[in-house]
Design a protein around this nucleic acid. Structure first.
Lengths: 174, 174
DNA sequence: TTCAATGTAAAACGATCGGTTTACACTGTC
DNA sequence: GACAGTGTAAACCGATCGTTTTACATTGAA
C-alpha cells in the first residue's frame, strides 16, 4: 500500500464521517500515519487532496455500477449503502461545503455526475430500445433521491426507488 | 424587522451559499449588521443559531407545501428552486457537515424530514384513498431526488420527478 | 562513497476559529 | 434623575486553521 493509497483511504473516511471543512490537516496526517511534509509533497494542497479523494471514490463507485440492468443498478446501490453506510452523496456534500468556489472540486463532482448519468442513459436505452430523455431523467432523480433519503430512512428508500424505477421502465413500452 | 429576523435571514443566506463550517461568526455579525455580543445574547451559540435557521427555514418551506395534490407539491418545489436556487437540501447539508454530532441540529433535520414525509403521506392517502407505504416512500425519494439532482441538472430534474410521481400515482389504482 | 530522493518530527508562519469580556452610548420608565 | 435594558465597538481568550520551513534519518543507485 503506497503512501498515496493510505492517505486517500484515510482521508475519504474522515471526510465522509466528519465533513471536509471540519477535518483539519492534522487529522489527515494522523489518520494516514504520515508527516505533514509528506502529505503536501504528495497531495499539494487540501483542495487537491479532496479532488483526488473524490476521483478515487468515483472510480470505486463506477466499478459497482458495472451492471446490465436498471434493476441491478439499484441493487448495486443497495449493496453500496449496506457496505459503506448512508451519509449522503459525498460529491454533493463537497460541493455544498465549498459553495462551488473550488474549481478542482467542481470538476470532480461534475465528472462523477456525468458518468453516472451516462451509465443510466445507456442502461435505459439498452432495455427499452429507444432514446427516452425524460425516462432517463426520472431514473437519475430516483437514484439521487435514494442516496439522499437513505440518510434518514435507511435501506427502504433504495428499495422503493428500485421498485419505482421498475414501474417506470415497465410503463415506457411502445 | 427585529434583530433576530435580520440575523436569521442573513445567516441562512450565508450558510446556504458558503456552507456552515466555512461561515465564521464575523461574517454572520457583519451580514446581520450587529455586534458579536448582540449575536451571542440572542442566539446563544453558533450551533443554536444553525438550529434556529433550520427551524425557520422549515416553517417557510412548510408554508410552500400547503397544497392539495402530489402534482402541486412538485410544482411548489419547482417554484422554490426557481426562487431560492438549487444548492441541495440545506438540512442534509447541515447534517453532513456536522457528522450528526450536534444534537440540536440532528433534531431540527429529523423534525423537518418527518414533517415533509407526513405531508406526502397525507396527500397520497387523500388522492388514492388508501394507505400505501411503498408509494409514499417512492414519492419521498422522488422529492428528495429532485432537490438533490436540481443542483447539477437544473429544473428539468424537478419536472421529471413530477411526471414520475404522476405515473406512479396513476398506476396505484385499486 | 558521494548524491539525490524520500521520509520523519517539530517548530513556526500569519490568519482565523468560536466565544468572552470590558467599556461605553443610548433608550424609556419609575 | 437614578436605573435597568439593549445596543455597539473592539480587544482579548486559547485553540486551530492550511501551509511552509528547518533539521535530520534512511535508503538505493551511480
Amino acid at each position: 500500500m503506497t503512501i498515496m493509497d493510505k492517505l486517500v483511504t484515510a482521508s475519504e473516511a474522515l471526510f465522509d464521517r466528519h465533513g471536509f471543512t471540519a477535518t483539519g490537516m492534522d487529522k489527515l496526517t494522523q489518520g494516514a500515519g504520515i508527516s505533514s511534509r509528506t502529505l503536501y509533497k504528495h497531495a499539494g494542497s487540501k483542495n487537491a487532496l479532496i479532488a483526488r479523494v473524490l476521483g478515487e471514490r468515483d472510480k470505486r463507485f463506477a466499478r459497482r455500477l458495472e451492471v446490465e440492468s436498471i434493476d441491478a443498478l439499484f441493487k448495486a446501490l443497495e449493496d453500496w449503502v449496506r457496505v459503506e453506510g448512508a451519509r449522503g452523496c459525498l460529491f454533493l456534500r463537497a460541493l455544498g461545503e465549498t459553495g462551488g468556489d473550488t474549481p478542482e472540486i467542481v470538476d470532480a463532482v461534475l465528472a462523477h455526475k456525468a458518468r453516472v448519468a451516462e451509465r443510466i442513459a445507456v442502461l435505459v436505452e439498452g432495455e427499452t430500445g429507444r432514446d427516452d430523455p425524460m425516462l432517463v431523467e426520472q431514473i437519475i432523480v430516483l437514484f439521487e433521491g435514494a442516496t439522499a433519503a437513505a440518510v434518514y430512512r435507511g435501506e427502504q428508500a433504495v428499495v422503493a426507488a428500485r421498485q419505482a424505477a421498475a414501474s417506470l421502465m415497465a410503463g415506457a413500452g411502445s
